[in-house]
Computed example of a mutant assay.
Amino acid sequence: MTATHPALPDDTPRRRLLVSIHDVGPRFESEVDALAARLEPMLGGPRFAMLVVPDHWDEAPLARAPRFAARLRSWSDAGVEMFLHGWRHRDDSAHTGAWQRWRATRMTAGEGEFLGLDRAEARNRMRAGRAVVEDAIGRPVAGFIAPAWLYGEGAHAALRDENFAMAEDHLRVWDPARDRTLARGPVITWASRSGSRIASSLFVAALARRALARSATVRIAVHPGDVGVPHILASIDRTVGAFAASHRPARYAELAPATAI
């Protein structure tokens, strides 16, 4: 079946919808397939980004998964933007300070890999991960997005060192080399770790469908864990469908430095 794009309001060209699939790698191949198949009809094609983890929890090395690497290249050739998403996605740092510990334990379940790294270690992982992903897709990555959107001072410094074109956190997309914000606004996502988190993310997504209806740029992020929760999948359908009717499915690359705010 050929995907069709919904009719859009006249001012839609000025509004962008950016959708991404996180934690892409051979460990979650079937879940990524399911999410991609779900999103394509709603977005009028493969108009989403993929955030690729080179070796998820040291258990799924992309460098030793040639079949999946070939699939990544095929998606990339079709126009899917590929971001480097950490190295192992697991947080193995010893955090000091109440704020850092809170972020590491409350904002994610031990997966904020780049929150506690120093500059040298963050740079090493970025370089190694970039080499793996770019070898798989045959072109430069679109940028770097830290696992759980969590960055420490070392990660921010390493981003500048490595000259990534783009980075993203919970509240903005920015150009690290120039420290220029390219888009603002919260990312809409879902949490599947517990019943309470599922309920709260469903509530927030419903609220966002109203609160962000006229935002210039809306970002939506989905994860492999979403596939196993029917209520989350239904919420994803409603949320992506609502914004695809009011915003143009777009690419992160459109957030050129000239549009910085």
Rank of each mutant, 00 (worst) to 15 (best):
V24N: 04
G25R: 01
G25N: 04
G25M: 07
P26C: 07
P26I: 02
P26L: 06
R27N: 08
R27C: 07
E29V: 11
E29L: 13
E29Q: 12
S30G: 10
E31N: 12
E31D: 14
V32S: 04
D33H: 14
A34F: 00
A34W: 05
A36S: 15
A37T: 14
A37P: 11
R38A: 13
R38C: 09
L39W: 01
E40S: 15
M42R: 12
L43C: 08
L43F: 04
G44N: 01
G44F: 03
G44S: 09
G45M: 13
G45N: 09
R47M: 07
F48E: 00
A49F: 01
A49R: 00
M50H: 04
L51I: 04
L51D: 00
V52T: 03
V53Y: 05
V53G: 02
P54R: 01
W57K: 12
W57G: 07
W57E: 15
D58K: 11
E59L: 11
E59K: 12
E59Y: 08
E59N: 11
A60K: 06
P61Y: 01
L62Y: 02
L62V: 05
L62F: 01
A63N: 13
A63Y: 04
R64N: 13
R64K: 14
A65F: 04
A65N: 08
P66F: 04
P66I: 01
R67F: 10
F68Q: 07
F68G: 03
A70E: 13
R71M: 09
R73F: 00
R73A: 09
S74N: 13
W75L: 14
W75P: 03
S76C: 15
S76V: 04
D77H: 12
A78D: 14
G79H: 12
G79R: 10
V80A: 06
V80N: 02
E81S: 12
E81N: 06
E81T: 11
E81M: 07
M82L: 15
F83E: 00
L84P: 03
